[in-house]
Nucleic acid binder design. Sequence first.
DNA 1: GTAGGTTAAAAAATCGATTATTTTGTCTAA
DNA 2: TTAGACAAAATAATCGATTTTTTAACCTAC
Lengths: 222, 222
Amino acid sequence: MNKHMQLPAVSASSPIYDVLRRDLVGGRFKAGEKLAINALKEQYQVGLSPLREALNKLAAYGLLVQENQRGFRVPKLSREELDDIARLRTELEGMALERAIAHGDAVWEADLLAAAHRLKRADITLDKGEEWERLHTHFHRTLVAPCGSVWLLRFIEQLNYQFDRYRRLGPKMPTIRQELDEQHHELVELALQRDATAARALMDDHIHKSYEVALARYQQHA
Amino acid sequence: MNKHMQLPAVSASSPIYDVLRRDLVGGRFKAGEKLAINALKEQYQVGLSPLREALNKLAAYGLLVQENQRGFRVPKLSREELDDIARLRTELEGMALERAIAHGDAVWEADLLAAAHRLKRADITLDKGEEWERLHTHFHRTLVAPCGSVWLLRFIEQLNYQFDRYRRLGPKMPTIRQELDEQHHELVELALQRDATAARALMDDHIHKSYEVALARYQQHA
DNA sequence: GTAGGTTAAAAAATCGATTATTTTGTCTAA
DNA sequence: TTAGACAAAATAATCGATTTTTTAACCTAC
């Protein structure tokens, strides 16, 4: 495992919190939808208190909107917000990648290679979309992990969840995905070569391509 | 009021949440301290459910640490984290300020002047430290408000709360504070002149000076 | 005297029920 | 027909009590 710093515990390991976050990011709820708490209670087979606490956390985290005395709602999607998220991702992940390349050690290099390999394997045997998502998230996290800033990592994680709400609106697009997957490996190569400038440029392009996928899906979605 | 975008509702207006956040940022709890929920319940005269929901939100927001089945704890302070926060503040607020200067309109200019003036007034009649803090936060928020990025504003807000946990460790330092206050007015001037480069440089310096204050207090605190 | 294990006390988390608020439907009057 | 007021239903929020887990104290055996 990584020896990197202890995160200030964003996700207390409450199972219902994790499950709900996964379902929100994965698009199991419609954007703008109002959550019927009692229905959720049954659907997920949890008590009211743990459920409400999870919803509160998710709201603080930006994956739900809490309205005064009227419960919780799935945030709306908008072109403007997608642009915002993609732009900030570019800035923050670029920054983090540069720092990671400056500080990452041999363990990081090994982790990176492993994460990229597992991702490719999961892509070839392309069952289990959820498993691919997990590995994809893990790869991008590994890439920036040794950037040295706990807070930067937190923000990047948050932005990625938000971004995925758009990206995962539609079904897979095999051609563009293959292109993106190749970039994953190129990113590893550049990172191992410690070429921060080229890596950052590629990361910019990678996020931009993902953005175009997300945007297309968002526009089809309407 | 501002006509700027609807934030994705970070703070649901639960009164206990706001009060607790203020007290956490203001240093009414010791860093590392374990929160006794029943004591809080009495102290703040609230029920268990609203209290726990507030604590959960604060944990998701990074102002508390939630440990598996052992309640909530005030996060520890560390030199490394302070450095991290200050550095990220510099990057993010600099970015936001540049964008705000590019997009801010006449209403913004007026808001800025008003916020700076109120802050100075509160400083002269220097009673009510809490009121000064409110106005200070409001000034810095106004400065970057029209940056056009909801998420950037969220992250900056979060970082400022964290930063203030360090800055507010000790009593006022009149000399350095005066210097910082002058910078507030200079920031307004540069913003009105739309000199993004100079404004950003000044902001860098402003945050750096604040950082030195915070660091001194943190070191005295041990 | 210390390590390991058992029990008692304390605290956190959860549950079921109650209360308060909002939403929906219906009726009346203009 | 429509706007407004009222009542009923639905839903959210809160409360008090119970259950579970952790922490502390104590005891025993080595």
